[in-house]
């Protein structure tokens, strides 16, 4: 065991190896590691932000759902109110219509009655004249008494 030139050879190769390691081995590996660390940190930050966003979105969705429910109840209320109103209006209209129809019917009946009465009166006058003619056939000139008959008819 003696100290010899092997020492120098080892020292030279050591220097070369360290130089090579520093120049070509360390930087790419360190870069890759640091870049990945940054990526992972970013990803984690994104994940936590997404989680917060999710909570917010859920709260918002719940609020909106509640609001929608309230709105729906309002709409239903308004609709039922409106329905009652429409039904009431229709009832009212129908009553008015009914009254109108009844009034019209009565007017028609009245007119018909009037017409029938007139007819009857005319026929009664004719009958009365016919009767009177028969009674007073001989003595009374039809032509002479025509004005009386007309007067009677008018009075009937």
């Amino acid at each position: 065991m003696s100290i010899n030139a092997t020492l120098l050879g080892q020292a030279i190769s050591f220097a070369l190896f360290v130089w090579f390691c520093m120049k070509f081995v360390w930087p790419p590996l360190m870069n890759a590691i640091e870049e990945r660390q940054k990526k992972i940190a970013d990803g984690l930050a994104d994940a936590s932000r997404a989680e917060k966003d999710l909570v917010l979105a859920q709260a918002k969705a719940g609020e909106q759902l509640k609001a929608a429910k309230v709105q729906a109840a309002d709409i239903i209320d308004a609709a039922s109110k409106r329905r009652n109103q429409i039904v009431d209006e229709a009832k009212h209209e129908a009553e008015v219509e009914r009254a109108k129809i009844i009034a019209q019917g009565q007017a028609e009946i009245e007119a018909e009655r009037h017409r029938v009465k007139e007819e009857l009166r005319k026929q009664l006058a004719v009958l009365a004249i016919a009767g009177a003619e028969k009674i007073i056939e001989r003595s009374v000139d039809a032509k002479a008494s025509a004005d009386i008959i007309d007067k009677l008819v008018a009075e009937l």
């Binding site: 790419p28 870069n31 890759a32």
Partner: peptide, 21 residues
Amino acid sequence: SVGLGALFLWIFYKVGQKATV
């Protein structure tokens, strides 16, 4: 000694060249 050092640097160099993020 030189052979092992070269082996170490060769492997690490290869990995460093192909290192992915």
